[in-house]
Design a protein around this nucleic acid. Structure first.
Lengths: 112, 112
DNA sequence: CGTATATACCTAAGAAACTTATGTATATAA
DNA sequence: TTATATACATAAGTTTCTTAGGTATATACG
């Protein structure tokens, strides 16, 4: 687990990237996917995730589709085309930021 | 200039790295150095910088040395040995975090 | 001589983006 | 029956910044 400050500011970028790469995901699924992909190093909290999803829906970045699974509710989120552009921009900006930080902190990045 | 959220959480790491690589620097000098090294992409604000420097001094991470240059004051900051360990840890954690983000966002990092 | 810009320090109010805590409810394994 | 997992949600509090303001000297421009 990374210190809290570090992960701050990356939440929207992470959500939009994951949603852009699949047609739909629900909130809890996003938390589990991030946990799995990062080996538990990044664990999104629900208190941060849900309000962010609601805000992005209100902004027209995401649309929702509520489904009943058994007796439980699932709220699937899909990125709109406007959202996909924002996703690309955010990932691109983050990539640029990392290059800048790598230079500033004099780091050697690993190969992709 | 990057969006505000992105740079959040990296201030201490940047300050400690720069101070670790030189015996001493003063506040204004740090802002100018970061601006220069990042081509203006990261510009530290004084409202964030000074309180952070003061806090790190209070925590024994930095020590100060006030010097008169002409009729102006300069407050030089030096990293303590305890601070150097924190600096290494912070840079290392950030490096690890970037590797995680590169994988999560499916990015191709540039060579160092 | 006045004004703008650069240098150099500082604090405080407010905003942003979280964390922590709490709540609801179903399903399943021990 | 108790804990853990699934699945949603909100709200109070905290951290960390931005924005705005304040003080003061030095220098360049017209």
């Amino acid at each position: 687990m990374y210190s809290k400050e570090l992960v701050k500011g990356t939440l929207k970028t992470i959500i939009l990237k994951l949603l852009s790469d699949s047609d739909k995901m629900y909130g809890y699924e996003i938390t589990q996917k991030v946990k799995e992909l990062t080996g538990g190093k990044i664990q999104l909290t629900e208190g941060a995730l849900y309000p962010t999803l609601h805000a992005m829906e209100a902004q027209g970045i995401l649309t929702t589709d509520v489904v009943n699974v058994g007796n439980r509710i699932r709220k699937y989120y899909t990125v709109t085309s406007a959202g996909k552009k924002i996703a690309r921009d955010k990932v691109s900006e983050f990539s640029d930021f990392m290059d800048t930080m790598i230079f500033l902190l004099d780091l050697k990045p690993k190969m992709g």
